Simulated assay, not measured.
Amino acid sequence: MESMEPGTVRPGGRTARVRTAVLQAAGDILAERGYSHLDLADIARRAGVGKTTVYRRWGTVTGLVADLLADMAEQSLPRTETGSLLGDLKANARLVQRTLADSRQGPLFKAVIAAATGEARTAEALRHFYDVRVDEWAPCVQQAIDRGEVPEGTDTHEVIRAVSAPLYYRLLAGGGRIDVAAADRAAEAAATAARAGVFLSEGRPR
Rank of each mutant, 00 (worst) to 15 (best):
M1G: 01
M4R: 15
E5H: 10
P6I: 15
V9C: 08
R10Q: 08
R10W: 15
G13S: 14
G13P: 03
G13L: 01
V18S: 04
R19D: 10
T20V: 11
T20L: 11
V22D: 08
V22C: 11
L23C: 04
A25S: 12
A26W: 03
A31W: 00
A31S: 05
A31P: 02
E32I: 00
Y35Q: 05
Y35N: 08
L38N: 09
A44K: 04
A47E: 02
A47I: 01
V49Y: 00
V49A: 03
V54I: 12
R56A: 09
R57F: 08
G59H: 07
G59A: 02
T60Y: 07
G63W: 03
G63E: 05
V65M: 07
A66L: 13
D67T: 15
L68G: 06
L68S: 15
A70W: 08
D71A: 11
D71P: 11
E74D: 15
Q75L: 10
Q75W: 11
P78D: 07
P78W: 11
T80A: 09
T80V: 13
E81Y: 04
T82H: 08
L85I: 06
L85R: 03
L86R: 06
L86A: 04
L86E: 04
L86Y: 08
G87R: 00
D88M: 00
L89C: 05
A91M: 05
A91S: 09
R94W: 08
Q97G: 02
Q97N: 13
L100H: 00
A101W: 11
R104G: 15
Q105F: 02
P107N: 05
L108D: 01
F109G: 00
K110A: 08
K110Q: 10
A111R: 01
V112N: 00
V112P: 00
I113A: 03
A114Q: 10
A115Y: 06
A116S: 10
T117P: 10
G118Y: 05
G118C: 13
E119M: 10
R121Y: 14
R121W: 13
R121A: 15
A123G: 14
A123E: 09
A125H: 08
R127M: 12
F129N: 11
F129I: 02
Y130S: 14
Y130H: 13
V132D: 00
V132Y: 00
V132R: 15
R133T: 02
D135W: 04
W137A: 04
A138R: 14
P139K: 11
P139F: 12
Q143M: 15
Q143Y: 03
I145S: 02
I145P: 01
I145R: 13
R147W: 03
R147T: 09
R147Y: 14
V150C: 04
V150K: 00
P151N: 02
E152D: 13
G153F: 11
G153T: 09
E158Q: 15
V159N: 01
I160L: 14
I160T: 05
R161P: 04
A162T: 13
V163C: 05
A165M: 13
A165E: 03
L167P: 02
Y169S: 13
R170C: 07
L172R: 09
G176R: 07
R177D: 10
D179T: 04
V180C: 15
A181C: 09
A181T: 10
A186F: 03
T192A: 09
T192E: 07
T192M: 09
A194M: 01
R195H: 12
A196P: 03
L200E: 05
S201T: 09
R204G: 06
P205H: 02
